[in-house]
Design a protein around this nucleic acid. Structure first.
Lengths: 207, 207, 207, 207
DNA sequence: CATGAATGAGCTTTCATTCAT
DNA sequence: TATGAATGAAAGCTCATTCAT
């Protein structure tokens, strides 16, 4: 193994350290409320050193977003394989999303907010993020297709549209706008109930 | 009419001027990309004068958000009354939302983004915004209730949950995350098609 | 007197304060060895405030240089008028320069070093500095002309060339390069002796 | 020949390479406008490697200055020997200086500016530079002495003072401050004319 | 010896917000 | 009320120099 590989690995590890630190701080305080100085301090580096690894603060943020998306995509794949029929696969994908939301709430928020933060700033990483997310969500479409073929799902649905509607629904029922959250609470409804209800609704409409 | 009233009116007008300016700028460039200096310049006031009318930049933003919500709520009410049966009212509410999205895209975005911008900053206005939005969205619940009573809607649905799911679905299909938008384009699907599909899906599930 | 005048005056005074501080610090420590933070601290202002008054550090430096040049030019004019004949005027100008060097050594150095510091940075102020210095030195030419006319100076000299040679000589004998200084000391010669010698030489060559 | 000698030679060659590169860059862009990174790149070394050969940036600069001084001194010696009488030797020395200025303008500037750059930084090299320059300039004194003895030069001049004045004059007429240059141009005078005039003036005053 | 990585000092700029009048 | 001036926090960047391997 040539030296350059070790160097490369070390560099990668340092990047990882920085993201680790930034992640922790952002999960706790939010992107707007932490500074590059905080990240530098947390990762025991000089402020200027951060700029050797990342173009700017937004790029650090996007790196966290990429991580989250990678985790989510991995869970999608894993759960996808757990389902036998197409319909089951759809259900599993929903469950995977829910698990991601519960187990990695920080990443969930970052994914959600990365658009306002990093959008319109032509960072190459933004493209990467979009591509990865699409890759993950397209599993819904694949499952629908399989479901139609194995007859676990109605054949008269449009897989493309349904893919979008499914993904949207689950994404949005997880990430409730505060108004909705308030409405929910006012009616003594738990978030879990609402999520289950939505999943059921979706699944029923496919059978 | 006491002087203080005139003063109050004048103050209100000045506030309006400022919001008008900020609105224009924000619709064109986005909240993050305009500065208090821009707003000041546009409204021909000094930067510091803005603070006589608004606590801070976020409050200006929220004021725009309130405007948008008022417009939306007005449209909701109007369309609500156009429907005869409960089901029709639900449909009309959806259409109202769509019209708002088409006719006031600026307000739509502001409403959508006001949470990340102004959340967690205990501005009294934030509460006001939440209350107003809930008021608007609760019309869905009212329509559902009526629909159950007049038998245009299945009686076995949970009006509270369904209210939430309906509102969420329509809200989110309008405001597609960029990933979804990309997915849509990749599959030669127009936004309008997706919106119609979602509306149909929702309405069918109620009959 | 309109308000804007008072404002203008106050602004000018603040500029003056900053230059005062910077001047003191630079005279004591040299341009390279002081920071904008030092100047800010010394003038009891925030670092960012300095940039409201000056484009950058170099511009502050040039402002000091302008001051020095103004003082020098004033002394030139004053001493010029003390001489009766053209020859005396030339002598007085030399003495003025020497006095400036003795009484304002800080300014003398700044004037001298302002070229390497601020040159090639197209600050409008640099042009101003050059113009002012030329104005001052051209008094030598005027005195020579007068001297030729009143016969205190040989008529066969070229006033333009001589102007330059005179100004150069006096300027450079004051601001000895370290090598020369060393040479001087090695030969038990004082700076004053060398200066007087040069002045005499110049004056004799004019008679 | 021991190994350490070869090592030493190689090290010396590497030093030479670095100075070559730095010289080229500095002649083109000026000391302030080039970076250690530029020099490193030009000499195909790492930035940090430069510090194995030179204490710091100033030392590189001084090394160039030494080179220039060596060339100048060599020219001084050569031209000194071309003159028969003392007066001729003085003239030749002036011509040597002028030739140096014309043929090695880069070195000329470096010599001139090396004081503000490297002064007050107790680099041993600075001493060396001073010593070498004094050595060169003292030839003027030697020539004057000879001239007095061979009667080509007036016997009533002070050789020490005159040495200084001569060296200063010629040095400064070559390296005109920008103000003087401007003054010259405004009066349609060429630099060459001014130089010749100064040389004549000096030589006449010695006869 | 050579290097890549890191450092730290400092300049510059932006901007929301506050202060003094 | 209105304002110009000032502030302070932070990002971003440059660069000479040092460190660890």
């Amino acid at each position: 193994m040539p030296i350059s590989d070790r160097k490369e690995r070390e560099k990668e590890m340092r990047r990882k350290d920085i993201i680790d630190t930034a992640e922790k701080l952002i999960f706790e305080n939010g992107y707007e409320n932490i500074t590059m100085a905080d990240i530098a301090k947390g990762s025991e580096l000089a402020r200027s050193t951060l700029y050797l690894y990342f173009k700017n603060k937004k790029e650090i943020y996007l790196s966290i977003s990429i991580r989250g998306t990678q985790i989510l995509n991995k869970m999608f794949k894993e759960y996808y394989n757990r389902g036998e029929t197409g319909l089951e696969k759809v259900k599993m994908l929903m469950i995977a999303f829910y698990k991601f939301y519960k187990e990695y709430p920080g990443y969930y928020d970052v994914n959600w907010l990365s658009y306002p933060v990093a959008f319109n700033h032509d960072l190459p990483k933004m493209k990467e993020v979009k591509r990865m997310r699409m890759e993950g969500f397209s599993l819904f479409g694949k499952a629908l297709q399989e479901g139609i073929e194995d007859r676990s799902i109605r054949s008269d649905i449009d897989p493309v549209k349904t893919n979008l509607v499914l993904a949207l629904s689950i994404q949005n029922v997880l990430n409730l706008p505060p108004t909705m959250e308030l409405h929910m609470k006012n009616n003594n409804l738990t978030h879990k109930e609402l999520i289950d209800y939505t999943m059921d609704l979706m699944l029923h409409s496919l059978e």
